[in-house]
Nucleic acid binder design. Sequence first.
RNA 1: GCGGAGGUUGCCGAGCUAGGUCAAAGGCGGCAGACUCAAGAUCUGCUUCCGUAGGGGUUCGCCGGUUCGAAUCCGGCCCUCCGCACCA
Length: 900
Amino acid sequence: MMFMDEEKRWQEEWERGGIFHSEPDKRKKFLITVPWPYTSGPLHVGHGRTYTLADIIARYKRMTGYNVLFPMGFHESGTPIGSISEKIKRNDEKTLNMYRKYISEYENIDRVEEILESFKDPLTVANYFASKIVNDFKALGYSIDWRRTFRSIDPLYSKFVEWQFRKLGKLGHLTQGSHPVLFSSEDGNAVGEDDIEDGDTDKVSIEKFTMVLFKVSEGDYNLAACSLRPETLFAITNLWINPEATYLLMNVENTKIIVSEQASKKILNQFAGSKVLCNINNDEITQKQFQVPLTNRTVKVYENSDIDPEQASGVVYSVPGHSVMDLHYMNRLALNIDPLFIIETNGSESKASTYISQFPSIKEANAAIYRKEFYEGILKSDVPLIGGRKVKEAREIMNEKLAQAKSGLTFYETSRKARTRDGKPVIVSIMHDQWFIDYSELIWKERTRKYVEKMSFHPEFYRKNMFDIIDWIEERACARKRGLGTPLPQDRAWVIESLSDSTIYPAFYTFSHLIKDIPDSEITDSFFDYITGNETDVLPWKKGQIENAKREFEYWYGVDQRITSASHMSNHLVFYLMNHAALFNESYQPKGISIVGMVISNGSKISKSKGNAISLLDVVNQYGADLFRLYVALVAEMDSLLDWNETEITNIKGVYESLHSLLDGGLAPVNKGDGRYSDLFKIKFKKHTLNFLHKMDELQVRNAYVEIVYEVIKDLNELSNIGLDKYAAVNEIIEDWIKILSCVLPHMCENYWSKLGKSGFVSKTQLDRIELTENDILKINYYEYLNSLLTDIRAIKNITRINPSTIRITICSGEMKKEIKMVTEGDMNVSMKNIIGIVRKNRGKMDFDIDEFEALSLYGQIIKTTLNAELNVEIYKGDGKGKIPMPGRPLIELEGERIG
RNA sequence: GCGGAGGUUGCCGAGCUAGGUCAAAGGCGGCAGACUCAAGAUCUGCUUCCGUAGGGGUUCGCCGGUUCGAAUCCGGCCCUCCGCACCA
């Protein structure tokens, strides 16, 4: 574990020197941020990729002259951390084991249980992992200014969030209304993805059903059937109930309805003031007739054991014409009822019967007809109310008409049967006083759109994506009744939801370190108004302190680059952009967003429940920070998918070791370099450096490092192939190479930097300006000419199987060049008429500018040594008959033994 | 369905926004060679087909079109992946 000690040593030195403490100065600033990690457990390689790329870019910007600020905080608000504590309190085995494993990554075995015990307090969980993640980040060599770090539940930061929400309130962006949520009625609280069994792998969503009320022909109650397809109402032939289920009579919205016992619980949660009246015998239902709303028709109710009393209301209406399910039941129960058809697709009647045989299962056939009719179906013209309408429109009209007739209610149901992790049913409940941020305001959207136009997006297509998301976003629930976080200032019974409290937080980094010793009771809204805006009121705070805070905000703010994953587009990033647009001036708006591709592991998705999440700490312990960083930089481009696997990292390890030995040898080479070739090598290195800079500016991190790692190693190998000392060549460029490599391999490069006898840290040095002179370009051209010649010679060698002892190269004479040039320009008045045909055939493959003789005399050695043959260069003296050389394409003749 | 991305030579993956210099970068895998007692690592060459001279043929999801010329532009079709929310 040599590398660990070395890496740790440099990390400590950086910390001691405070070299990543960023202060405003005259240079151009660059603020780079990543989403703060959520501290519910250790980070995995997926996080590590994003953060590592951010650090590489931060270091690159620093190297190219920017004053860089790379801050980091911790996200502790929200419900998941609380529910972890809850589960630990009630000894949930799965959670206990998971956290045992997590803790043991960081601690000695004998401390695990003690720490696990302390996790019964959610704050301990949050703080524990926050402090561990700090260590992980340090161990990866990130150039973070840790003085500015804070946590989303810090009282000072809470003040900032309160300020944000009071401003949003004043701007009219906060509203209150009713809202469906996933809910556990046994626990009495809303549940998130994290609380639901398999919630992360099999998402549960909320579906909106239409509950249609069928009035009993004699009496004052209704049978309540739920459907996703209210447009099929006029094709209803009967109703279904389950023979074994219990049905209850309820009072809902001053109407008496019958639903299953299971459904009654959902209704109690969704309709205020609803109550259960009494049990109803199934016989009583099946003996009655029920009226189809909006028609004069009555239908009967049949018992059907396939009807699930737990699904929706436990009562279903039957449309055998358009539902394969119902048709199937009809057939199975041998009911003699004629289906009704009211929907047409492709100009003719759509019938469930045509689907039933075409699919492997009833379920698939039903899904097929549903999709087909929903997207392409049109109601027949003689259908009342909705005749001639598209199914999509008809559905909305029916919902309206049913509501008007007091025969329809909206009922929410989960998209699949779901249970909480401790086995309690998950239902949908309605929050009646839910707080929202209302993002639907058009002026606000327009303003955000304007800023988005000016930003940089990487990859670019995400900009269009963001425009669409801005169009689409409406109200967003922004507070919850439980979890960690800041109480909503407008109503302290609510806690601000964790995505909504994390939209403008990068602003807080700019001054968080300067206000740490101000008691939070002294922080008021005008404090932040002053720092972020133009308020000039007399302030009670220490002048120097707040002035410094203001100065730093004004210097740094406007995040130059935010690096995050695509999954944040439609939630975090859109909130980030819109909240900035609402609260800050144009100059403080975000300037760039980069989306990092997904990370998968050995071909499959990483998920906590699958147990294939490789922890970042494991990676660092096993491979070291530099190797991991090199892996991230070289193995996949930032915006594409990265498949973490061991084979690949072994390969990268080879590269890492080559770099080591090259730099070792380059520190003090034994031999002297050959002037001509070391000169050429230096020129090529300059070219690679320029390409590197260009690619990094385009955020093509992989391409950039392929250029400065693989290409340079290739050049060095070429040198040693012609018998020269590559270490002497490394020595010529070692300083710049170390600087450039240090963005990815900071520890290793600091080490070489000090071995070179350089003072200070390579992490803080700048790359000098580099440009190619005309002479440089000339030499590169010579070299490339030699290379293409070599390729041609090899091709000939392969075909003829001649192993040459002498290679005869015949190049164009000056006179001949002129004549050839004439032909290419259409002037056939040349002395060597024989050349005309061949010249025309080869146009486009010639190079008139290169001095071939000069190129060959300078670098001919390359050919001689690699092919181990004599090189014989002469100028063409023939008459143009037979084979002739072209400019840039000399004649090549091989002399020697034939092989095989 | 809507919106987005994409289908490239054994695999992964560039190029395709500025059409020719693209048989098409790079990596992996495979083959051969060098080094080595051997293996591994490393380095070198080859890796669509034909060819005893750097050439030619056929390729970039499918079908058409524009053009002297298309992987690259246009139209249509087929297929794959991602998002469609209140969850961090």
